[in-house]
């Protein structure tokens, strides 16, 4: 699952889709994951990064990661 190439992200959690003109804000965990996705990190790397930084176990992360992907997909921010 890859973020669309031209999506602009910022450290403060803003996401801008230049193709549609839509803006989004993400909470800190969401913003961290999206920045890692933008750096083309693998799922395993993202998971390692997040679970070592935040107090969360693997299965909770997996479930929430899938949910974030669903949110990104719903908002047309993922490559098809």
């Amino acid at each position: 699952m890859k973020l669309k190439k031209n999506i602009a992200t910022s450290e403060s959690g803003f996401i801008f889709n230049p193709a549609t003109g839509d803006s989004y804000s993400a909470n800190p965990v969401g913003s961290d994951i999206i920045l890692l996705m933008k750096d083309n990190k693998s799922i395993a790397e993202i998971k390692k990064n997040i679970t070592s930084k935040y107090d969360v176990d693997d299965s909770q992360f997996d479930k929430d990661y899938d949910d974030l992907l669903a949110q990104l997909r719903d908002n047309n921010l993922l490559e098809h």
Binding site: I15, D22, S23, Y24, S25, A26, N27, P28, V29, G30, D32, I33, I34, S52, K53, Y54, D55, V56, Q60, D64, Y65, D67, L68, Q71, L72, N75
Partner: peptide, 15 residues
């Protein structure tokens, strides 16, 4: 110490 976790969300900014 690890940071408090909260599930990731994005929210569309609109009018």
């Amino acid at each position: 110490a690890k940071l408090k976790y909260e599930r990731p969300v994005i929210k569309k900014l609109n009018a």
